Simulated scan of single mutants.
Amino acid sequence: MEFQNLLIVNKERIQYITINRESKLNALNKDTLAELHTAFTDAFANPEVSGIILTGAGPKAFVAGADISEFAGLGAAEGTALARDNQKQVFDVIANGIKPVIAAVNGFALGGGLELAMACHIRIASDNAKMGLPEVTLGLIPGYGGTQRLTQLVGKGKAMEMILTADMINAADALQYGLITHVTTPEELLPKAKELMTKIISRAPLALAAAIRSVNAGLTDGVNGYETEIAEFGKCFGTQDFAEGVAAFLGKRKAEFKGN
């Protein structure tokens, strides 16, 4: 598929998805969200892709937020549908994906941009990053999972403060709060993301998927995360990757996982 708002590059089993609306600070309009759905769905299904790094074009923004001009004139029913559809089609697709996703946050990650980063499994940021959920300044609240995922990541108190004040935080604070896991210079952001992803995808692919499902299960209402972990643990024993991992360990060699 030809994308108008995304740049897609595959290299060494990693797919780089870059939101390419630099003149608009990579804001999420409906076309970009539709393309993100397609890109991630395709990447998760592509056997040549083992992990995905998501970033924004240019030095100023990862994603500065949603395209607010598209909100004008919407009523309550349309707003509800907007949040439900995009959560289901984009943010939940990423969060529940069977392959690891790292958000490489450069510059502003605000509103829907921070929500997009939080849907990814891991977040790292350059030291010029600014993150926040400013929706209450528009008479809104975060609508793409922000109230839930921020609370899961930083705890209720800090999430309440960030959402209710609409204040931005810098990368150092985001690291302290647990919102991100690494801070780099802007120049080292993508190399660090590649380093981290390369280490991750050297592990057993089916085990990675099982680990993602198990962690997510513990954060899902009505699901017993411990039971999910037990079931996923057991299923791993039926994989060839498990047999290869044990054989490699006992043979004191590097495992060669095939994802089966």
Rank of each mutant, 00 (worst) to 15 (best):
L6G: 09
L6R: 06
L7K: 15
N10D: 15
N10A: 11
N10P: 00
I14G: 08
Y16D: 01
I17Y: 06
T18R: 08
I19R: 03
N20G: 00
R21N: 12
E22D: 10
A27F: 00
N29F: 04
D31R: 14
D31S: 13
T32M: 11
T32C: 13
H37N: 15
A39F: 12
F40P: 09
T41H: 12
T41Q: 14
A43G: 04
V49M: 04
G51P: 04
P59T: 05
P59D: 10
A61Q: 02
F62C: 00
D67A: 15
S69I: 01
E70V: 03
A72R: 09
A76V: 13
A77I: 10
G79T: 08
N86D: 09
Q87T: 07
K88W: 01
Q89L: 11
V90K: 01
D92A: 10
N96M: 10
I98T: 14
P100W: 02
V101A: 04
I102N: 02
I102R: 07
A104P: 00
G107S: 03
F108S: 08
A109T: 05
A109H: 05
G112H: 06
G113E: 05
G113S: 05
A117C: 07
H121W: 07
I122C: 09
R123L: 14
I124A: 08
A125R: 03
A125W: 01
S126Y: 01
N128D: 11
M131R: 00
G132I: 03
L133R: 01
L133F: 08
P134N: 06
L138Q: 14
G139Y: 13
G143Y: 05
G143E: 10
G146Y: 05
G146T: 04
Q148D: 12
G155L: 10
G157R: 04
A159S: 13
A159G: 03
L164S: 15
D167F: 00
M168V: 12
M168R: 02
I169S: 03
I169K: 02
N170E: 13
L175E: 05
Y177R: 00
I180Y: 02
I180C: 08
H182A: 13
T185N: 03
P186I: 00
E188L: 07
T198S: 15
K199M: 12
K199E: 15
K199S: 15
I200L: 14
I200V: 15
L206H: 05
L206K: 14
L208F: 00
L208I: 15
L208M: 11
A210F: 06
I212N: 04
R213D: 11
G222A: 09
V223R: 03
Y226T: 12
Y226I: 14
E227K: 14
E227T: 11
A231C: 00
E232R: 11
F233C: 06
F233R: 08
F237L: 15
D241I: 06
A243K: 15
A243T: 13
G245Q: 06
V246A: 13
A247G: 08
A248C: 10
L250H: 09
L250V: 11
G251W: 07
G251M: 09
K252N: 15
R253H: 12
A255T: 07
F257A: 08
F257R: 06
K258T: 13
K258Y: 02
N260L: 13
